[in-house]
Amino acid sequence: MKIKKGFVMQKIGDTTVVVSTGELSREFHGMIELNQTAADIWSYFADGLSQEEAAKKLSEEYGISLEKAQEDIAKIANKMLQAGVFEDE
């Protein structure tokens, strides 16, 4: 899963948001607000990790089971998919 080029993650005070820049901003308007876990998951995908790799990293960083991490990743990835964040592969 690859995040479309042009999304920029921005920290505003305690809040993390994502906005689109460049050509992407013609099709994607507005702002996505992320909680801390979602922001970390976003970073994993932005770094090019697969869903499995992201789940493993989340499990290690948050000290949670791999199953719980996979569940969280799937939930966030699904929302990102619905928001049109990923590129077609």
Binding site: Q10, G13, T15, V17, V19, S20, S25, H29, G30, E33
Partner: peptide, 9 residues
Amino acid sequence: KGFFVTTTS
């Protein structure tokens, strides 16, 4: 939210 972030066009 108390703020709004967007890209200039």
